[in-house]
């Protein structure tokens, strides 16, 4: 698959898919989408990059180990549980912060951060699995 065309297109495709995965993640609360699907789309993006540039290329592009991404995702998900505790409400009660920025309605909420956590765990863990399987392809 190491054709010139594919290797040229792959980075753009990956970037586009990653962007799309984030879009799917963020719209998840109101439209079809969410952390799980978004995460899987991002994994596919990295897989395409991997096919074009090899596992080492993906690892370089990611900078950190995929499992670290997963771990930080789990941390973020657990952390989003905490605000309700500080406010003395039942654990995991969702907190919302809505405001307008440059005329755009923005709603920040703990479920959103939770979903981002889910997204990161899926991205990290499954990328790690896929990479470790792909890595040994040549031997």
């Amino acid at each position: 698959m190491n054709t010139v065309i594919f290797r040229t297109v792959a980075p753009f495709l990956t970037a586009l898919m990653t962007l799309f995965s984030i879009f799917v993640l963020l719209r998840g609360h109101n439209e079809p989408g969410g952390g799980f699907i978004g995460g899987l789309i991002a994994v596919s993006a990295f897989a395409i990059y991997g096919i074009a540039y090899g596992v080492a290329g993906v690892r370089r592009a990611l900078h950190v180990h995929p499992m670290s991404i997963a771990a930080s995702g789990l941390l973020l998900a657990v952390a989003s549980v905490l605000p309700s505790l500080f406010l003395g409400q039942p654990t995991m009660t969702s907190q919302w912060l809505e405001f307008s920025l440059f005329g755009t309605h923005i709603a920040l909420s703990t479920p959103m951060f939770f979903d981002i956590g889910v997204y990161l765990v899926v991205v990290g863990a499954i990328t790690s699995i896929a990479l470790s399987l792909e890595e040994r392809e040549s031997d």
Partner: peptide, 13 residues
């Protein structure tokens, strides 16, 4: 829960 996608609301909230 301020979400219109019920499946997602169940999952994250």
């Amino acid at each position: 829960a301020h979400g219109r996608n019920i499946v997602n609301v169940i999952l994250v909230d």
